[in-house]
Design a protein around this nucleic acid. Structure first.
Lengths: 141, 141
DNA sequence: CTCACTGCAAAGGTTTTGCAGTGGG
DNA sequence: CCCACTGCAAAACCTTTGCAGTGAG
């Protein structure tokens, strides 16, 4: 079992990107803060080990990671962007009360939707992927 | 068949809101610009007939309309908020290329998902509603 | 007269950009 | 030595807020 940092550097390298401490740190932050952090959350996390990283750098690094499909953007109703390191298609539970986003995975649901779109062709539209936004409240709220 | 302006003023009144020219104009804009306009789009549209409306007013009016369930927010990947005047639950086709959002309605899909959630209880979570974000490209892009 | 609503301008927060500096290859 | 990457600061952008003014009831 490889260490996380090693896995991370391999992922970055595998996209043909230069492995830098900032990229390592940002991707590590996205993985470890695994609750769909904001850019600000990531900055704070990264600075714990690397105090002189700039906000601009976080955004630039996130952009390159997104371009290279190592990270995804997640939008929320309040307009603040959040980031997700899980690239497999999955759905999200949004808490209306506390802004928490939790992953939701269910094979049955995926099959249901995939089958639906397989037989249903949306005219004039080429489907790429879909995400179900499931809104509600967590009991703990 | 009633005129649109009349319908609009009735909707506003039915929520117990004072009917003002700005509210009329904003709600009319959302309905007529029916492609999920941004606040800016709405401002431009409203100003064609009502040149001295301020951006701040647009946002304030939108907020009250949202609170009173006459309008919904729609988020996009680029972080700019868009607004939707169709309150019935429905899904959205997002164009990755051109930022166009189109409504997508399908009874079968709704039934599929409603049935799914009826039998599947997500533990620790109280479901309110769900929206399917369907990403892809329109052929015209 | 009162109170909610508006217009304006300023502030706030998030994200982007420009540029000089730097460090690895 | 070069070039991509970084840090910093300023700018751009969208949205919210404060306040004085206004107008309908």
């Amino acid at each position: 079992m490889k260490k996380l940092t090693e896995q991370i550097s391999e992922k970055i390298k595998s996209e043909g990107l230069k492995v830098t401490p900032q990229r390592m740190a940002v991707l590590k932050a996205v993985y470890e803060l695994n609750n769909h952090p904001t850019a600000d959350n990531i900055l704070a996390y990264v600075r714990k080990e690397n105090p002189n990283v700039a906000m601009g750098t976080i955004y630039k690094v996130l952009d390159t990671l997104i371009e290279n499909k190592l990270v995804k953007k997640v939008t929320t109703d309040n307009g603040v962007m959040r980031y997700d390191g899980i690239m497999e298609n999955h759905h999200h539970l949004y808490c209306v009360e506390c802004d928490l986003i939790e992953d939701y995975n269910d094979k049955e649901l995926d099959k249901l939707l995939t089958d639906y779109f397989k037989k249903k062709n949306i005219k004039g539209f080429k489907l790429k992927n879909f995400v179900l936004q499931i809104n509600g409240t967590f009991n703990k709220c």
